[in-house]
Amino acid sequence: MEKDFRLNIVTLGKTGVGKSSLLNYLFGTKFETGIGRPVTPADLIETDADINGHAVRVYDSWGIEADKLTEWNNLLKDKAEEHGAAKNPEEWFHAVVYCILAGGSRIEDCDANIISNFVNQGYKVTVAITKADQISEDDERNFKKAIFETIGKEKINVVSVCVGAKTRSGETKPFGRDELIDSILSSWVETVKNRISTATIERLYGHLDTFKSELNDLVDNYDISGRREGNDELAKLLETKIQAKMQELKTETVNEEAKDLLKRCYDIGYNLQSSFGEISLSKIHSPFKNFDSENNKNIGWWYTGYALTLGVMPLINSYAPKFIENQKDRIKGVIEQSICNCKNLLEKELLPMIQTEIEKLLEAKKN
């Protein structure tokens, strides 16, 4: 594990659920309570802490309020992007803890929506039922069942927690801390399984964006002509380059990126090491080596679209600056659409394959 690495944990919950008390109980660190905080969700508060001897960084939210839900969602969306799959694993949120006050027979829509948003980003969310000592075991069981049915049992962990408090009948003993810690640490493994494939595709998108800029530069420096034959040469050149780039991404780059991401996760995730043992990175390449050899023909639509764009143009003076600029803009528009379709192809065809192979690899190490 890298010396300076910290496990990034984001904690959320509505105002009054006892989140600050839970964090104090969990980490033994004094977290700021909601009293005196601004009423708008300006940012997440970062606090360095320790969990069983391992450094963590807690990203604590202001108490979520129903009348400011839009602001909250915008804040969380921005923060999720800052720590999204496109970043290196060291920068991800590695665990998400969402606090819900014990009681009731169902999870509220506001809570369910926020949890689902994180689930959809590849996180295994830990739902902490706070003040669980205040409900009966039957009510607790039914509440957990309702949460699982709403979100999906395989997508979340639900842990009942009590931080300890004075009651009329005496002092209540705290419980749930060890289970909550286990859930936080194990969720890192699930995050790896869920996000490696998405992160790989995001990196491939980055390669395509860079490639698009290179193609646009080529067009800018190309001697655009009013003759169909001369422009067809450019169309074929661009088509060939796009086909070659897609083949490179699918047979070489995907392996390089997946291997790098797995190695980073292995280096920083002590829980991943203990759960799966040493990962043999040399075996990552083979699953994708022969991917989609027939799909090169799917790029063929590109030349047709380009030919239609330029081929219907009459012979015009090749020295007309406005015509030349318009032609270059048209070509760049076709390139933009081409790159978009390439991204869609990668997501549709390659993403499920990477997900399957990563799961097989990690499960093999686990067993």
Rank of each mutant, 00 (worst) to 15 (best):
E256F: 06
P352D: 04
L76Y: 04
L208P: 10
D232H: 12
R168M: 04
S169E: 14
K289Q: 12
S116W: 05
E82Y: 03
S61K: 01
I316A: 08
V17P: 13
C340S: 15
A165D: 06
E252G: 02
K263V: 07
G18R: 09
L262P: 00
I335G: 02
F288H: 11
L281M: 12
G333R: 01
K173T: 14
I331G: 02
T191P: 00
N194Y: 05
C162H: 00
E229H: 09
F148N: 13
E108D: 15
G206S: 12
N231D: 07
E90C: 08
T198I: 10
I331E: 00
F148K: 08
T309E: 14
V219T: 02
T167M: 06
N290A: 12
D220R: 01
I358E: 07
F93S: 01
G16A: 11
A102Y: 08
C99M: 11
T200H: 02
I331V: 14
E363C: 08
E347W: 03
E190A: 11
A112L: 06
P314M: 12
G333T: 04
G300S: 15
A55K: 15
T210N: 14
P287R: 01
G206C: 10
I242L: 15
Y25K: 00
A66T: 13
A128W: 01
T253P: 04
W188Q: 10
K241Y: 03
R227G: 02
K124H: 15
W92D: 07
I242Y: 01
T198Y: 04
V158S: 02
Q337I: 05
V97H: 02
D138C: 03
G305Q: 10
E46T: 10
N194L: 05
I196W: 03
T29W: 05
A307T: 05
K289F: 04
I51P: 04
P314D: 12
A55S: 15
L261R: 04
N344P: 00
N8G: 09
I135Q: 08
V56L: 07
A112R: 02
P38E: 13
G36L: 11
S197G: 12
E252R: 07
I331D: 02
H94G: 04
I107W: 07
I135H: 08
T309Q: 14
L361G: 11
S169I: 08
V10F: 06
S116A: 04
S61R: 02
G226T: 12
K68A: 06
I129V: 15
T15N: 09
Q355V: 01
S282L: 09
L7W: 13
K322A: 13
V161D: 00
E71G: 15
D48S: 10
N157Q: 05
L12P: 07
G206F: 09
N120H: 07
F288V: 05
T47R: 08
I201Y: 03
Y123P: 02
A49F: 06
N73D: 10
S160V: 07
E154P: 01
L204D: 10
L351E: 14
C340P: 00
S187R: 03
L315R: 09
A146M: 10
G36Q: 04
E359H: 12
I147L: 08
E91L: 13
V192Y: 07
N117S: 13
Y123D: 04
E256C: 02
G53Y: 05
